[in-house]
Design a protein around this nucleic acid. Structure first.
Length: 565
RNA sequence: GGGAUUGUAGCUCAACUGGACAGAGCGACGGUUUCCUAAACCGUAGGUUCCGGGUUCGAUUCCCGGCAGUCCCA
């Protein structure tokens, strides 16, 4: 940041009157060129009809050299910057002392809503739900860390035709014992059986299901009570999964929450002259924007997702007045979101509406669905993760050691592995699920990062810094490895900001992995506890700062950091 | 048919939004524990960045035209 300002000032001095707000200083592509580089003299050369090296030289001549040990012009006109060791140590001290490990509180006073996970009631969560839950939760945590006030809302699929099928099935296909001890698994079974019967030729069952649905929609007390029971059981089951994944919501407002306000939204659309009749349905024509036609009221009078999302956004704006609302859903819904975002804007919505789409998860090349029979339960995946981690924990352990903490540790590692394997990819990519990929415990994996953290904790304990990572004395940069690690650590706040701006936790995951690699290499090749003072203390400080960065970063990804592995 | 999105090493992915010789992990091969935790570290091999044009001093990145996968709409 500061370096960018210095370099910008040099541009302004060299070319008075120009706009250099886009000038950026970035990390050097190769450490042999220096620590940082600026490539913007090349662009500026064109504007001023200079040859690029001359432009770079003009800038270099005006550059305030106090932080720099060396300034070179290389290649076609790159400005290569080598900072002084004292600049690095001063920045390290400042970062160590900063609140929030230097993460800028740019969201202070701003409110946002994040809508993620959103499973369907009466069904168990499966591997297809991981992405929205884990990516959404990481975005949630990252924005909170930036100082935003975040409302995390779980927009459950808790309304619709499936409840007619469920109610009918519940009454006639479950035994009394099953009804007394109802679980989501039973609801799911009852749904499958009832839906199968609804396909029978005579159509009697199907009609009965429809009748139950209509009764529910019209407020029949018995059916409403059953519906509430199904929702309650479902949420309890979801919460069991969320507890394992470290996910917490502020509200659970499902689709049903907006039932009463959809008519109002449609009326507003009509008043604004946005909606028109078409074949009995009410639609909003978005052909001009190449978004097709969005139905807001079906020909049978029912509403659909577009209406319900519009009602929902209206409610959120009235209740929270957020700066933006972020929706984390799979990429198939892109058209739908573009459509209703456009309608919302036409209706005067000023709140930023952001869709964060993520790629589809498949299994062995096939879409995940009940029909394909490849629907791996989230519970099953997490159990397997714990099992594999536990086996490794035990194999690494002294047979005589206390085993009481093993299960908890295996959970932290296993869940960390599952979450990291998803978070470390750009959300946009499709993922073909495989057990081995989802549960990777080595290399670029959650446990690699957790392990690096455990080792740094152990180092601190051996050094007598039991109370966390407390800094004492100063930093000192001696080797090239220390220098690279130090510069990398200084970039932490920037990595958090970049991850937030792109809505990609993967940016942070990538940063943490690179940082841990630099640390591991440094740790392996440089004596720390065995160094002489004052180098020993300086190195411990660097390790301490690494520990803080890693712990904070993993927390933002929702990955736990055990101190002993 | 219209649109979205993806295509990078054998496999899974990066590349800070146009920069220097395209980097990691896994897998393969070889090495490192009397030494701070070997879930680690070090090294070797592995590339026509899907293909063809264009813009640019400079393209994995931007534009045009194809091809292929996935998805949405009709």
């Amino acid at each position: 940041m500061e370096l960018t300002a210095i370099v910008r000032a040099a541009f302004e001095a060299a070319f008075p009157g120009g706009d250099f707000s886009a000038v950026r200083v970035v990390g050097a592509t190769d450490s042999k060129f220096g620590d940082f580089q600026c490539n913007d003299a090349l662009k500026c050369a064109k504007l001023y009809h200079l040859n690029p090296r001359q432009a770079a030289e003009k800038v270099a001549a005006k550059l305030d050299r106090t932080c720099f040990e060396k300034v070179d012009i290389a290649g076609p006109g790159f400005l290569n910057l080598t900072v002084s060791a004292s600049w690095i140590t001063e920045r390290l001290l400042r970062l160590s002392a900063a609140d929030h490990v230097g993460i800028p509180q740019k969201g202070r006073g701003k409110k946002i809503v994040i809508d993620y996970s959103s499973p369907n009631a009466a069904k168990q969560m499966h591997i297809g739900h991981i992405r929205s839950t884990v990516i959404g939760n990481a975005i949630d945590r990252i924005f909170r860390a930036l100082g935003y006030e975040v409302v995390a809302d779980n927009h459950l699929g808790d309304w619709g035709t499936q409840f007619g099928i469920l109610i009918k099935g519940y009454r006639e296909l479950l035994t009394e014992a099953e009804r007394a001890h109802l679980t989501v698994a039973l609801l799911e079974k009852c749904y499958v059986l009832s839906a199968a019967k609804a396909k029978e030729e005579d159509g009697v069952w199907k009609e009965a299901c429809r009748a139950e649905l209509v009764k529910l929609q019209q407020g029949d007390e018995g059916n409403l009570a059953l519906w509430r029971k199904f929702i309650e059981i479902s949420i309890a089951e979801f919460d069991r999964m969320y507890a394992k994944l470290g996910v917490k919501f502020d509200t659970y407002r499902g689709e049903s929450y907006y039932n009463g306000t959809m008519g109002e939204v449609v009326a507003e659309l009509q008043q604004a002259g946005l909606a028109e009749e078409s074949e009995g349905a009410l639609v909003v024509n978005l052909e001009q924007e190449k978004l097709g036609v969005a139905i807001v009221r079906k020909s049978d009078g029912g509403y659909n997702y577009t209406t319900s999302d519009l009602a929902c956004v209206k409610n959120r704006i009235e209740e929270y007045d957020p700066e933006r609302i972020i929706y984390v859903t799979d990429a198939r819904q892109q058209l739908h979101f573009r459509q209703w975002f456009s309608i919302a804007r036409k209706m005067g919505c000023k709140t930023q509406l952001i869709h964060v789409p993520f790629g589809l998860m498949s299994y062995q090349g096939k879409a995940i669905s009940t029909r394909e029979g490849n629907l791996i339960k989230l519970d099953e995946l997490l159990a397997e993760a714990v099992k594999r981690s536990l086996a490794i924990v035990e194999s690494r352990q002294d047979p005589a050691a206390d085993k009481s903490g093993n299960l908890r540790l295996a959970e932290q590692i296993g869940y960390g592995a599952v979450k990291y394997s998803d978070l470390s990819h750009d959300p946009a990519t499709d993922i073909d699920f495989s057990w081995d990929k989802a549960l990777a415990l080595e290399g670029n994996s959650g446990p690699y990062l957790q392990y690096a953290y455990a080792r740094v904790c152990s180092l601190m304990e051996k050094a007598g810094r039991v109370d966390g990572m407390g800094l004492t004395g100063t930093f000192e940069i001696v080797t090239a490895q220390e220098r690279r690690l130090a510069l990398q650590l200084l970039e932490f706040p920037g990595a958090v900001v970049r991850a937030a701006e792109a809505y990609k936790p993967s940016v942070l995951a990538e940063y943490l992995f690179q940082t841990a690699q630099l640390y591991s290499s440094f740790y392996q090749n440089s004596p720390i506890l065995k160094s002489d003072e004052p180098l020993r203390n300086a190195r411990l400080n660097l390790c301490a700062l690494f520990g803080e960065v890693l712990r904070t970063g993993l927390e933002l990804l929702g990955i736990e950091t055990p101190r002993h592995i």
